[in-house]
């Protein structure tokens, strides 16, 4: 019986290999090539970031041979990831820290607890959103992630009802590193006055021409939900507002009553990453879409605030957040 099972399994595998082709083998060279090819096939920023991926191959591929250690392989792949300067193109070594692009910036944010202690007269929260009143006229909402279940974000209807007497709302997405499309749409739709285009995306059209891109595909947002807030809104950002958060910022900025205050966002112009795998059991993600603002420019430098404000030492010593202070002034204008 064991023999029959073995022969059956052997036949299945050889039949599968015959029709589907052999898998790459687990060697440092094939791991390097697999990652290089995976990026080459679909990464959307070769043109906008002026990256010559063939040259990168010619420089780094000779540094890899069949005896390259895992440590050295990680270092070389890490250099490739950093050349792309794309926070969505990341390698996940098994049981180790991921290899990604993590530039350092000033935070311009002291954390939600600090805001809560120094500004809010009351505070309610769930695992995604915290909110409260700064004064009778100004409401404050902190969104820590767009990565939770949609139900967590439906609380926005309750918040807007609680804020029915305020003149303006501050929505703080500083240090929000993103999440999914649906949650950010749920929030933004409650501030929409009508359907509007907020961004454009471009995609690779084939693997042979790395710089050939699709036409601009418009992303739009429209009103949704039981209540809409039509007063003034300030969206607070910092350099750690990334990914889905940047799309949220773009979708909010397209409405006339909403302004962005604080620092530039991270600049995740490469977005919509897909998950791929490497022969040694690691996996990696690669961006497949180029996110552009309403001027059809990739947001690689970050989304520029309408009012640039940084936190200052002087304000912090007075237990004040310079960005929140400016936002209060702006929403009450």
């Amino acid at each position: 019986m064991r023999k029959i099972s073995f022969i059956a399994a052997l036949l299945l595998v050889s039949c599968t290999d015959f029709f589907l082709g052999k898998d790459p083998t687990n060697t440092p060279i094939e791991i390097f090539d697999e990652f290089w090819n995976g990026v080459d096939d679909c990464w959307p920023e070769f043109e906008s970031k002026r990256v010559n991926w063939d040259s990168i191959y010619n420089i780094y591929r000779p540094q890899i041979n069949q005896k390259t250690s895992e440590y050295d392989l990680k270092n070389v792949l890490g250099r490739l990831v950093n050349i792309l300067e794309d926070g969505h193109t990341t390698i996940y070594p098994k049981n180790q820290a991921k290899i990604g692009y993590y530039p350092r910036y000033d935070f311009n944010f002291y954390g939600l607890n600090w805001i809560r202690q120094n500004y809010l007269t009351y505070y309610k929260y769930n695992s995604a959103i915290g909110y409260g009143l700064i004064s009778q006229d100004v409401g404050y909402i902190y969104i820590g992630t767009f990565g939770n279940q949609d139900e967590q974000y439906s609380i926005i209807d309750q918040i807007i009802q609680d804020f029915n007497k305020v003149k303006g709302i501050i929505i703080d997405v500083r240090s929000n590193s993103g999440g999914n499309k649906s949650p950010r749409q749920i929030i933004a739709s409650r501030f929409a006055d009508k359907q509007r285009i907020y961004a454009y995306e471009r995609y690779r059209v084939n693997k042979q021409q790395p710089t050939k891109m699709s036409d601009f595909v418009a992303d739009d947002i429209e009103p949704s939900g039981s209540v809409q807030f039509k007063g003034k809104v300030a969206v607070l950002t910092n350099r750690y507002s990334f990914s889905a958060t940047e799309e949220f910022v773009l979708s909010m900025k397209c409405f006339p009553q909403i302004i962005q205050i604080g620092d530039y966002t991270n600049g995740g112009s490469g977005t919509s990453p897909i998950l791929k795998e490497l022969p040694n059991g690691w996996s990696y993600r690669v961006s497949t879409s180029l996110l552009c603002d309403l001027n059809r420019k990739p947001i690689r430098m970050g989304i520029e605030p309408d009012i640039i404000v940084y936190t200052t030492k002087e304000d912090s010593l007075k237990m004040k957040d310079s960005i929140v202070e400016r936002a209060i002034v702006e929403v009450l204008k």
């Binding site: 679909c42 995609y203 699709s214 879409s289």
Partner: peptide, 8 residues
Amino acid sequence: QAGYARSL
């Protein structure tokens, strides 16, 4: 199916 870019 999605286009060349899987995210389409």
